[in-house]
């Protein structure tokens, strides 16, 4: 039997669906717990509902590249496994790299090579699985201790704890800003366009006190930046 028939077999679909349903279920449990806890500590229902709205709108645009990765890996790894991996744990870039490593050590240069056999497929699957578990293991075994330590910092100096979290975020942000700034080109143009649109929308949102503008600001800015990328490429800049 050709491996792709195994990769697209009903039983794998069933397993993938099971995993995804479980993860959805987990999200719902945590969501319920968060709402209960919010009520306990006096967080207003409006604020929590607003977080639901903001995050739902936020998630739409960054999810599109995940669907594109699905198109890229599904022909090689089969639809169910690709679907599962991209819906839960991992990220688009990780799955491609890990699957590629699985192929390379078997002497297959690229995903989708004719030599990509059942054995290579199994190898990719195992390697993708074992490579991704570490963050999860750290949470299971070390999160409690680490969070307790952070709580102590926050208790001692809550102002500093707030700055600390923001500084960590700026560390991450700087990495993704640094590359387009250093390299210039289309990436930099897109970054500046989307930053400018975001500034404008935030300004309008704050001036008019319309909160819904803030909800959509990030998605609209991203789409504007991406539209500029298409525009600039088609007129030959970048």
């Amino acid at each position: 039997m050709d491996y792709i028939n195994i990769a697209n077999s009903k039983i794998l679909y069933l397993l993938a669906a099971m995993v995804i349903v479980f993860i959805m279920f987990q999200s719902v449990i945590f969501l319920r717990m968060a709402f209960k806890r919010g009520k306990e500590i006096g967080l207003s229902r409006e604020k929590m509902i607003e977080a639901v709205r903001t995050s739902a709108v936020f998630a739409i645009v960054p999810s599109i590249p995940i669907v594109i990765s699905l198109i890229a890996i599904a022909p090689v790894l089969g639809i169910p496994f690709s679907w599962m991996r991209l819906s839960v744990i991992g990220s688009q870039s990780y799955e491609l790299i890990a699957a590629g490593i699985g192929a390379k050590v078997m002497g297959v240069e690229n995903l989708g090579d004719p030599n990509y056999t059942g054995e290579v497929f199994a190898n990719s699957m195992w390697i993708m699985t074992i490579g991704i578990i570490w963050g999860l293991l750290l949470c299971i075994f070390a999160l409690k201790r680490y969070q307790n330590k952070m709580k102590k910092v926050a208790k001692k100096d809550s102002k500093w704890a707030e700055i600390l979290v923001n500084a960590l975020f700026f560390g991450m942000l700087s990495v993704f800003l640094g590359q387009p700034i250093a390299k210039g080109g289309l990436g930099l143009v897109v970054m500046l366009c989307s930053a400018a649109v975001m500034l404008l929308l935030t300004f309008i949102g704050n001036k008019t006190k319309q909160n819904w503008i803030n909800d959509f600001a990030l998605s609209v800015s991203m789409i504007s930046g991406m539209a500029f990328a298409v525009l600039f490429t088609s007129i030959g800049i970048g």
Partner: peptide, 9 residues
Amino acid sequence: QILPALFGA
């Protein structure tokens, strides 16, 4: 350019 668009915003 989705990452520059996201992080730019």
